[in-house]
Write a protein that binds this DNA or RNA. Structure first.
Lengths: 197, 197
DNA sequence: ACCTGAACACCGTTCAAGT
DNA sequence: ACCTGAACACCGTTCAAGT
């Protein structure tokens, strides 16, 4: 927790390190409670620092988001490894899509923040999403090789698609069952004869 | 242009009517330029009125949006009528989905505004979306009867789905061709053997 | 009745002054 | 170097004062 990608770059003075950690901790809680758009001023205040200190460490909202969500996004890496070892590549892809959508729904506004970040490789949030993008790429490739997915489906399409579904289900306040239904609607397609299994 | 749903309820004094019309006209332009989140203060200023006047006529952003987008949303009614008269119900649904997504993409942030409005029947923007919701319901029902769509697909699902696709393609700055590809990905489903035509 | 615009309570951001 | 917090430039919203 005290060792971090951003921290390892250059050692911080003890009080600066303390502030950094406290801001990240408070931010994670604030984003969870109020969503991705939580007030940065409020976060600084609750962390016991001035807004200037927060902006020094995190020049943009995405930078703070990346630091606060780092742990949650890393969990996706574990999920990806598990699914790459699973027997059925097609089922693994379905589970990945569901799991990813669920993760994106946990924080309000997260699908939107990530969709924007994925567009810009220089965004720190985009970097933190690496377990996600890498996971989609690998699991999709494996499903393609198994002939379970059309060859022209791209990983970026899939990420955009899952993100948009997570966004829609968050907007509608859908239950988990409703999310599964919406996802099944997409993965199976709309045609009645399209289900091959 | 001077006669309007909101206007017909009760006759407005001449200067009030002039202000009302000017605000709607300026708003339509501002929303087209800056997206759904355009500054209301700026709109009031450009219309030559104080912010108080704007808020008197339109208590919420959605109220102003509804008035400004009324014309554009009404066009969808014509499209729906045309497609209900088309030969192939399945092709008509595909075209409706594409046309709807295109409409939602024309104004920045519109998919989001409409997704929120659809959740709340008392929202004026929800009322203005009536041509859209009615169109989806009718065209979907016809496609279902023709056996072209699974029976468990609901109109609200479809609207959420199209809205989310429009949202994603707007976020990514997709071309029209890319939008078509994304939509085809969804309507056909991801499985290689799923295309029945 | 309706319009006006000053005033208010918020945002996020910057930066000179401190340590 | 880093922190501090006042100051700034924006939002949307309200409301007392005018006509």
């Amino acid at each position: 927790m005290t060792t971090d990608a951003a921290t390892l770059k250059r050692p911080l003075r003890a009080d600066a390190q303390r502030n950094y950690d406290k801001i990240v901790q408070v931010a994670a809680q604030a984003f969870a409670e109020k969503g991705t758009g939580a007030s940065l001023d409020d976060i600084a205040c609750r962390a016991g620092v001035g807004p200037g200190t927060l902006y020094r460490h995190f020049p943009t909202r995405d930078a703070l988001l990346a630091a606060a969500l780092h742990g949650a996004l890393d969990e996706l890496g574990d999920t990806a490894r598990r699914l790459m070892a699973a027997d059925d590549p097609a089922a693994a892809l379905d589970e990945w899509i569901l799991e990813l959508a669920r993760h994106l729904r946990t924080y309000g506004g997260l699908p939107e923040s990530i969709a924007t970040a994925l567009q810009d490789p220089s965004s720190p949030l985009c970097t933190s999403c690496q377990p996600m993008t890498a996971g989609t790429a690998k699991i999709l490739a494996r499903a393609k090789e198994a002939g379970a997915v059309r060859a022209d489906v791209q990983a970026s399409d899939l990420n955009a698609l899952i993100g948009s579904l997570a966004w829609a289900s968050e907007r509608r306040g859908d239950s988990d069952a409703a999310l599964r239904r919406l996802i099944k609607l997409v993965t199976d397609g709309l045609r009645p004869l399209s289900v091959v299994e």
